[in-house]
Amino acid sequence: MRRLTPLTVFVLSAFGWIVVLTALWSQVSAWTSYPVGVLSHMALEQGAPMWIRQATVTPGNIEVDTAVSVPAPEQGGRRGELTVEANPARYAYGLPIFLALLFAARGKGLGWRAVAGWALLLPGQAFSLTMSLLMQIVMAAQTNIRLLRVSQWQMEAIIYGYQLGSLVLPTLVPILLWLWLDRRFVQDVLVRGWRDSLAPSAPPQS
């Protein structure tokens, strides 16, 4: 029976860890992602003071009261100030991905690297959450620049930031972070295994 290569073992182990850790993370995500909501709260107050009145962060939710006035259909077309909300964990699922790669590599210093990785993931997750909330405001205002009191380039920056934060960062950042924190394993196992897989096999002995 052919023996599995270290690269294959790593891939299978990482997949298994992702399944297990994602299930565990879903039970505690409201608490592990709470700092994401706090960072997003700070970013909104500093970056969009003309829109934000107050933001309330609780485990599993961030609610933002805005100064943006939009039509309220349930009130006969009268206008009301917009409130948006989101779950910070929605963009924090990179944590189990990062931990799965870390555990699959089985390197030294798992504890401190796990904690460091969790902390380093927070800014990117907060960016994604912030862009999601801003995009909700933009969509509710029907991208009306005059109503939102912003310029065209600011509107486009929010749209592109939302796409980056929702489609790219949640999965790319944990992988890049792991590649940086576990670079010796990457060099010794992954890169070497990839090179070996490209090398031509030796001809059979006659």
Rank of each mutant, 00 (worst) to 15 (best):
F98L: 06
A48F: 15
L110G: 12
L39F: 15
L167W: 15
Q205V: 03
A55N: 04
T5Q: 06
L129D: 04
R79W: 12
R146F: 13
S197Y: 03
G109I: 09
L24C: 13
L177Y: 05
S33N: 05
L190N: 04
D65Q: 15
L110C: 10
A89S: 14
G111H: 11
M131N: 03
A48I: 14
T66L: 02
E74C: 03
R106Y: 06
P174W: 00
I97P: 00
V191W: 12
V36P: 05
V173W: 15
T56D: 12
L181P: 00
W194N: 01
T8M: 12
W118S: 03
S69N: 08
R3D: 11
I137F: 03
L133P: 02
V68S: 00
A14E: 08
G16P: 05
L82H: 05
R146M: 11
Q136R: 10
A104T: 01
L120D: 05
G117R: 02
Q187A: 14
Q75E: 11
G76Q: 02
A199N: 04
N61P: 04
V9E: 07
V64R: 00
L134S: 02
Y34I: 03
A89Q: 05
F127T: 06
V138A: 12
A14W: 12
L181Y: 09
I175D: 07
L4N: 10
L121D: 01
F127L: 10
V9H: 11
I52Q: 00
Q163C: 13
A119Q: 13
M131L: 06
A48K: 09
L39P: 07
V115E: 08
W180D: 07
V150I: 15
A199Y: 03
L164Q: 07
T8V: 12
T56G: 11
L172M: 15
A86C: 07
A14I: 02
T83G: 05
Q163K: 14
V173Y: 12
W31Y: 13
L82A: 03
I145M: 09
Q125F: 07
A14K: 11
L167V: 06
L110W: 12
A30N: 09
A105T: 08
P49A: 06
G37V: 02
D196F: 08
Y160I: 14
L198Y: 02
I158S: 01
E45N: 15
G16L: 06
A202E: 04
F103A: 09
T143F: 10
V68K: 01
W31E: 12
A199E: 07
T22E: 06
V38T: 06
G117S: 03
S128Y: 07
Q54Y: 14
V186G: 00
A119M: 11
L198E: 07
A105S: 09
W25Y: 15
Q46D: 15
A86N: 07
L82W: 04
T58K: 15
A43G: 09
G193I: 01
A72F: 10
A43E: 08
Y93C: 01
P71V: 01
R53C: 07
Q187Y: 13
W31P: 06
A100I: 03
R192E: 14
R184G: 12
E63N: 13
T5M: 08
G124S: 13
P96K: 03
M135F: 10
G161N: 06
V168C: 10
V84G: 00
V19N: 10
E45Q: 13
